Each structure stands twice: as structure tokens, then as C-alpha cells.
Simulated scan of single mutants.
Amino acid sequence: MGEFNEKTTCGTVCLKYLLFVFNCCFWLAGLAVMAVGIWTLALKSDYISLLASGTYLAPAYILGVSSRDGGVCAQRQLTVPYFILLLLIFLLEVIAGILAYIYYQQLNAELKEHLKDTMTKRYHQPGHEGVTSAVDKLQQEFRCCGSNNSHDWRDSEWIRSGQAGGRVVPDSCCKTVVTGCGQRDHASNIYKVEGGCITKLETFIQEHLRIIGAVGVGIACVQLFGMIFTCCLYKSLKLEHY
């Protein structure tokens, strides 16, 4: 009987150390997850106003929430709530990965359906300053003009209203931006990119969705080991108790 207890105690100590190592690794991974979430929300969300839905941000919010984890639980009564905490975080990470994958699949259709209308109907319109800023940044950063091509701007309410000052495209379409440069839409003056900004924006968002999805699913897989360690530790502590 004494030999059995000694083996059980040794196994329990090993499990506690394994769980401690797991927690250290997962804490570091949690920081990485939080960094990805903050990076998406704070630095890469400039173009959210150009999208019809907020699904793109949902995985980032979930990653930020689920990046917090508890410490090592060395007592039997704490292993059950700790396991539940791990399970909830695991489910959140999986949901983030699934949302990223779903939005990845529907992104092309959404952009084709809504991006042109957003750019032509809201650019330089009252109350849509965020869209104006996002469009200018999009066209300059990705060196493109219009949703599909520069001709899209012929349907712009801003251009048609006469408030554009003779411009046929926004100044942000120009290769060298100066005030009023959008009055000439020759290829030597503005960006004439095949596929327009829609292709550039789609590629940009898809790259970030791949990162978000991979991080979410990857951390969820790692958490499975934590839940296994927790279950084993609970059983070991239960044997010692009895």
C-alpha cells in the first residue's frame, strides 16, 4: 500500500510540473494571441468602414477575450473549475477560427456587392468621414483607383455633385498626390491597376483572416493538452485523497 501511495505521489508531482510548464507556455501563447487581436483591432481596422459586415472584427475580439488564462491549480477542488475555464477558452478559440474561415469564404462576394456602392455613395459625404479616410488610404497604400477600376468614380455622388472641383477621380488615385491632381485620369497620372482596389483589399483581408484563424485553431489544439493534464491531475489527487 505504501508503494502504491509513493508512486501516486510521484505521478501527481510530475503532473503538477507538466501543468506548470503548460501554463507558462500557454501564458506566453496568450500574449501572442492578445497581440494578434490588438494588432487587428488597432492597426489593421482602417478598412472596416468599407465592409458591409463586422464579421472581420469578431474573431479578433474573441482572441482578445480568450487570451487570459489562470495559473496552476495544485488542489483537487480547483481542478474542476480550472478545467471548465480551459474548456470555455478552447471553445472561444475554435469559434474564432471558424468565424475567420466562414468570413474568408464569403469575403469576395461581399466586396463585389458592396465596395463600389460604399466608395461612390459615401466618399466625401457628410457623416462618412471614416469612409473617406479609408478610401484615400486604400488607394494610396495599394496603388489602385476605384473598386474595379478608375471608371467607377464616374458614378460617384461627390464627382457628380460638382463639389469635386473638376476632379474625375479623388486625388488619392494619383501616383504623386497634389491638390487637384485628380482632374486628369490618364494612366501616367493615376493608378490603373487590373482588378482595382477590390482585389487588393480582398488579398489584404484574407491574409489577416488566415493569421487569425491559424492562431485561434493552433492555440485551441495546444489547450487540449492542458485539459488532459488537468483531468489526469484531478484523478491523481482524488486517489491520494482516498
Rank of each mutant, 00 (worst) to 15 (best):
E3Y: 00
N5Q: 12
C10N: 11
C10G: 08
V21A: 12
C24D: 03
C25N: 13
F26E: 07
W27G: 10
L28R: 12
A29Q: 06
V33R: 08
M34L: 15
A35Y: 04
V36G: 04
V36T: 12
G37E: 01
I38G: 10
L41D: 04
K44I: 00
S45N: 07
S49H: 13
S53M: 02
S53C: 01
G54E: 10
T55D: 14
S67A: 14
R68D: 06
R68Y: 15
R68V: 14
D69W: 11
A74W: 12
Q77E: 13
Q77G: 10
L78K: 09
L91H: 05
E93W: 02
I98P: 02
Y103R: 00
Y104P: 11
Q106L: 11
M119K: 06
M119F: 03
M119C: 00
K121E: 15
H124K: 14
H124E: 14
G127Q: 04
H128P: 04
V131W: 15
S133Q: 14
V135Q: 03
V135D: 01
D136L: 05
K137M: 05
K137R: 06
Q139F: 10
Q140W: 03
F142Y: 13
F142L: 03
C145F: 05
H151L: 11
D152V: 00
S156G: 04
S156Y: 03
E157N: 10
W158L: 00
W158T: 00
I159M: 15
R160F: 00
R160P: 02
A164R: 04
G166Y: 02
R167W: 03
V168F: 01
P170D: 00
C174S: 06
C174G: 10
K175Y: 00
T176G: 07
T176K: 12
T179N: 02
G182V: 04
A187T: 08
A187R: 09
I190V: 01
Y191V: 07
Y191N: 15
G196K: 05
I198R: 15
I198N: 14
K200Y: 03
K200T: 06
E202H: 09
T203L: 11
I205N: 00
E207T: 13
I211N: 00
I211R: 05
V215H: 01
V217R: 07
V217P: 00
G218H: 07
I219C: 06
L224V: 13
L224G: 08
M227L: 10
C231F: 15
C231I: 12
C232I: 02
Y234D: 08
S236L: 03
